[in-house]
Every structure is written in structure tokens, then in C-alpha cells.
């Protein structure tokens, strides 16, 4: 849904990095996307393919997505468990005092450029 907004942010960041590093062409951009982030990879790719065409420095850049599994930590039993399967309630002890350790990231890992 807001993948286009995210794509604009990525393009802005990548262009800044490309300029800093004096590169001519960006060939790929690798993202890390958490399993419970609000970004849907295939929609992101559609927006990406549309938006990068308008950016000469990265008009053929490929988008690579690495998914990060979501893991929740339980403050009561100090255990961790997969978020998507069990949600907010700890399957080990039944506590609600849990928080997400990882899995909501939307970040730029690296780019390939010449």
C-alpha cells in the first residue's frame, strides 16, 4: 500500500550514497525486510520497477530483498519464539510481557555500483 512512498525514500538514500561515493551507475540495491514489517516485497518490486526508470543513475537497478524472520522476546521467561506463529503471547509461559526483537526492519543493506 505505501510501497511507493518507501521506494521514494530508498531512491533518495541511494542517490545520496551514490553521489558520496562518486559512482556512475547503481546496478542493484539489497534490502532487508522483516517478516512483520508493513512492506510487501512483491508490491515494492512493482513500485521499484516503475520508479527507477525515472532515475538515470539507477534506471536499470535491480531490487534484491532479504527477508528477516520475526522473533519475539519474553520478559518473564526470557525465552524467544517466532512472532508470526504465536503473536504477542509467549507460547513458553503464556505471558503477555513480550516485545519484538527483530522482524520489522525495512532497511537498505548495500548497493552494487560502478
Amino acid at each position: 500500500m505505501h510501497e511507493l512512498g518507501v521506494v521514494f525514500y530508498i531512491i533518495r538514500d541511494v542517490k545520496a550514497v551514490a553521489e558520496e561515493n562518486h559512482v556512475q551507475k547503481v546496478h542493484s540495491v539489497t534490502l532487508e525486510i522483516g517478516e512483520v514489517s508493513t512492506v510487501i516485497p512483491h508490491l515494492l518490486e512493482d513500485c521499484w520497477n516503475w520508479a527507477v526508470k525515472r532515475e538515470p543513475i539507477m534506471d536499470a537497478a535491480k531490487l534484491k530483498v532479504e527477508q528477516i524472520d520475526a522473533v519475539t522476546y519474553c520478559e518473564d521467561c526470557k525465552g524467544t519464539y517466532p512472532t508470526v506463529q504465536y503473536g504477542k503471547i509467549c507460547p513458553l509461559c503464556g505471558s503477555e510481557h513480550t516485545y519484538l526483537l527483530k522482524g520489522n526492519e525495512v532497511s537498505i543493506k548495500e548497493i552494487e555500483a560502478t
Binding site: D13, V14, H27, E105, V106, E110, I111, E112
Partner: peptide, 18 residues
């Protein structure tokens, strides 16, 4: 042809907005 280099960024897409 220039060699392809990998530039590490490691930055949240939302960092600037935050």
C-alpha cells in the same frame, strides 16, 4: 569497464523521517 563495487549502507529506510 569499471569493476562493480559493493557499498554497504545498513540504514533503516525510515531513519531520516524519524
Amino acid at each position: 569497464m569499471d569493476e562493480v563495487k559493493i557499498i554497504e549502507i545498513k540504514k533503516s529506510v525510515f531513519a531520516d523521517n524519524d
